[in-house]
Structure formats: structure tokens, C-alpha cells
């Protein structure tokens, strides 16, 4: 049978000019549960879907504080995500030790991208299987970046990664024009709505999502469950009740992605 001859190591090109191993790593990002981010002029909100492996277990942490002014949300191999957040944290600590000022977000993102790029060009390495949404604040304002296993990075107003992130992206694309002047509360509301889009009808509760905020005068922090639940209720994101009770019945909550286990 036909077998791809050009995908057994990262440093081999396919005749079409593709690096399959790198593309596979990017597939890993798509399989992780969703993470989204959006920003205004002064605030950035990150949110993620938490899928537990079983009824008996807790879920993996997908949003990490890097410093007072920076945080990340990840999708893909959580283990790789943890390693990279540790790297980001130590870069921030080293910078503020030398200069006693916070590391500009854009510079941190480039360092991270360079680190990912090295893995795409060494025969004895593998690319990181994780996508990172980096949210941060510096003297040039609020920023949201997406870092990809390929070593590419992009700046966004709003973005979503992970499984069924297309639904969230569609939602964000429809709404993003108002984000720049949105209040903190509106950003959180949009974040929760976007997360809801990725759930495909499953009920949104505080137990399956994490939300974090960073902004002017507000150090990066993860909102506690109670606050999120109250917000969900106040935004009335709850299922439109009985209307399609039947439909909800068949929609068993989908299996967690293999990457989150």
C-alpha cells in the first residue's frame, strides 16, 4: 500500500515542500480542548474548556500565570504546555531581575517562537505539540498572540484554538469589531459565549471552563469557579431550557480528546 515516505522525521522535506512532522504537531493542537482569547484596549481575557478524563478524575490545568502582566492558555499536549510556561516564567523573572521592569510581551513571544522553531530543524528533536495563546500588557498596550508548534506566531484581536474552535472563531469574527472599546465584563461575556459555541449544545457550567483576566491595574489572575458560575447565570447563557430537551438528551457529552488525557 501507499505510505508517506516523507513524514518519519522533522527535517525531511516532502517534494511538495511540506514538513509533515510539523503539520502533525499542529494537528495535536486541534485535538486539544478549546482555548480562546480576546482583548480590548486595556484588557485581555483568556478562557478554556476543561474536559476531565473520567467522572472520577479532575481536569488538566490549561491556563497559566506567567507574570503579573502575562498569562497563557494552551491547547494540545498539556505536558508540553507546562514545560513552555515554565520557560516563559523564568524568562520573565530573569528580565525583571536585571531591569526591575516587566518583560515586553512581544519580545517574550518571539523568544518562545524561536524556541519552537529550533525543534523543527533538529533531527533529534520533536516539535512541541501545543498551541499557546499569550495574553499580556506592556508599554505599547494590550496584546494577544498565538504561538504555533511550527515556530510561527501571530497577533490577534481575538482567537480560538483547539477542538471545535472554528465555532468559537465564527462567533468572535461576528463580534470582534466591538471588542476594542468593550468593558472588562463584556469581554468576559463574549469569552463565555465563544466557549459555549465549542461545546456543541452541551451545557456551559463553571466546572468545565476556566476564565482568566489581565488588564491595566489588574494583574493576571484566574477567576474562581464561583465568580464564573455567577457570571454564567447573570448572562443567562444557560440552556434555553425545555425548548429542545429532547435534542439535549441525545447529545451525550463528547469524549475528551486524547491529548487532554
Amino acid at each position: 500500500m501507499f505510505r508517506n515516505q516523507y513524514d518519519t522525521d522533522v527535517t525531511t522535506w516532502s517534494p511538495q515542500g511540506r514538513l509533515f512532522q510539523v503539520e502533525y504537531a499542529m494537528e495535536a493542537v486541534k485535538q486539544g480542548s478549546a482555548a480562546i482569547g480576546l482583548r480590548s484596549k486595556t484588557y485581555i481575557v483568556l478562557a478554556s474548556v476543561n474536559k476531565a478524563n473520567s467522572e472520577l478524575s479532575s481536569h488538566q490545568k490549561k491556563i497559566f500565570k506567567v507574570d503579573d502582566h502575562i498569562g497563557v492558555a494552551i491547547a494540545g499536549l498539556t505536558a508540553d504546555g507546562r514545560v513552555l510556561s515554565r520557560y516563559l516564567r523564568s524568562e520573565c523573572i530573569n528580565y525583571s531581575f536585571t531591569y526591575e521592569s516587566p518583560l515586553p510581551v512581544g519580545r517574550l513571544v518571539v523568544q518562545l517562537a524561536d524556541k519552537a522553531q529550533v525543534c523543527t530543524q533538529r533531527s533529534w528533536k520533536r516539535p512541541y505539540g501545543v498551541g499557546l495563546l499569550v495574553a499580556g500588557l506592556d508599554e505599547s498596550g494590550a496584546h494577544l498572540y498565538y504561538n504555533c508548534p511550527s515556530g510561527n506566531y501571530f497577533e490577534y484581536q481575538a482567537f480560538a484554538i483547539g477542538s471545535r474552535s472554528q465555532a468559537a472563531k465564527t462567533y468572535l469574527e461576528r463580534k470582534f469589531e466591538s471588542f476594542m472599546d468593550s468593558s472588562r465584563e463584556d469581554l468576559i461575556k463574549h469569552a463565555l459565549f465563544a466557549i459555549k459555541e465549542t461545546l456543541q449544545g452541551e451545557k456551559l457550567t463553571s466546572s468545565i471552563c476556566t476564565v482568566a483576566v489581565v488588564g491595566v491595574e489588574e494583574p493576571f489572575h484566574i477567576l474562581d469557579q464561583k465568580t464564573i458560575q455567577e457570571l454564567i447565570e447573570s448572562f443567562e447563557i444557560r440552556e434555553e431550557e425545555v425548548a429542545d430537551e429532547g435534542a439535549a438528551m441525545q447529545e451525550q457529552s463528547p469524549e475528551p480528546a486524547p491529548m487532554d488525557i
Binding site: 536585571t98 521592569s101 515586553p104 508599554e139 505599547s140
Partner: peptide
């Protein structure tokens, strides 16, 4: 060279020199 709108101010330079 970063050319990104961020720049070292006197506080950063002073700290760097102290190091």
C-alpha cells in the same frame, strides 16, 4: 532592533548598570 514600541528608560539602564 526589536522596533516594537518598547524602549529602555533610565530606570532600566540604572538597574542594568548596577548589575
Amino acid at each position: 532592533m526589536w522596533d516594537d514600541g518598547n524602549s529602555f528608560g533610565p530606570k532600566e539602564i540604572h538597574n542594568y548598570l548596577t548589575r
